[in-house]
């Protein structure tokens, strides 16, 4: 049993239609500093939400969608975000796309992850070394949880009150995102050939949250072909749930009974080349990269 002083309570707030759960270690920084850090995280999310949410009529992206603003006249940050999403479309051979079926630009596939990444950078810049950010099931951690690995449970899509795995999030794969094909039908816009995804749920572990989020979406949309291709080309681990409940996992998510190649090994041994696959934005927590 942990004593009360060892507990790390979660700070929660609503944003982007979901909830963010924030845990901050580094108690030695003092309550005031941690409160300020938490407020900054909330500000980061609110700013992304206000600019990019399509369910907000007053967001800049909604105005672009309605044609009130031309894309070329939109803010630089919006165009940067769109460019980043287009870049991911190319890297996934079009499986991931920032366009809705009706042609409207929809950046929700990257915005939440970008907000998480920016919040993480903000925490690291404040000198915080141990924290976790969970925005609606997309998780980014840094350092450890009171001396232990941060552990993330993967929800069982057949029973969301249960989990199918509890996985330590360790450097370098310290981000995980999960996409489902059921809960939010419109979350993933491109079922290629318009067949239902063979996957009920896909979780991707990566070094940064944008990669994890985009590739989870892409694998749900692209099916087993995308899974095979993306697991090869990116230093990620994947846990996928097929429609019948069968699990597929990359070697790094297998119990180390007969440990074969893991994405972590691949990341370490090929970090220089893997960098090319990193997103345009720097991943947070880089100060810990040499751990």
């Amino acid at each position: 049993m942990r004593s009360d002083c060892e507990r790390m309570p979660a700070l929660t707030f609503a944003t982007m239609g979901t909830m963010v759960s924030l845990r901050l270690g580094d108690a030695e920084h003092g309550a005031t500093a941690l409160t300020a850090a938490a407020q900054q995280v909330e500000t980061v999310f609110r700013r992304w939400d206000e600019q990019f949410s399509l369910y907000r009529e007053d967001s800049e992206l909604s105005r672009v969608a309605r044609g009130d603003i031309r894309l070329t006249a939109a803010s630089e940050s919006l165009r940067d975000c769109y460019a980043l999403a287009l870049d991911w479309r190319d890297r996934t051979q079009g499986v991931f796309t920032p366009h809705r079926g009706d042609g409207v630009i929809d950046l929700s596939g990257v915005v939440k992850a970008l907000a998480i990444a920016e919040a993480g950078i903000a925490l690291t810049d404040r000198g915080l070394r141990n924290w976790s950010i969970n925005a609606g099931g997309d998780v980014l951690v840094c350092g450890d949880a009171l001396g232990h690995d941060w552990v993330v449970a993967i929800v069982d899509p057949a029973d969301r009150g249960e989990s199918i795995a509890s996985v330590p999030l360790r450097h370098p794969l310290r981000a995980v995102a999960t996409s489902g094909s059921a809960e939010r039908g419109q979350h993933i816009w491109t079922p290629r050939n318009f067949e239902p995804s063979p996957f009920r749920q896909v979780s991707v572990f990566a070094a940064d949250i944008v990669t994890a989020d985009v590739l989870a979406t892409a694998i749900v949309a692209g099916g087993e072909a995308a899974l095979g291709d993306l697991a090869e080309r990116f230093p990620i681990d994947v846990l996928a749930v097929l429609r019948d409940g069968q699990l597929l996992a990359t070697p790094g998510l297998r119990k180390p009974l007969s440990r074969t190649t893991t994405a972590i090994d691949r990341f370490s041994s090929a970090s220089s080349s893997a960098r090319a696959d990193a997103p345009a934005r720097p991943a947070a927590c880089e100060r810990r990269a040499s751990r």
Partner: peptide, 25 residues
């Protein structure tokens, strides 16, 4: 990725779970 039994998935040593990852709630 290969087929895997639930009992074969990597499990954290620590009993504490802080986060849950699933399709966005």
């Amino acid at each position: 990725a290969a087929p895997i039994l639930r009992s074969e998935v990597l499990a954290a040593q620590s009993a504490s779970v802080q986060n849950v990852s699933g399709a966005t709630y």
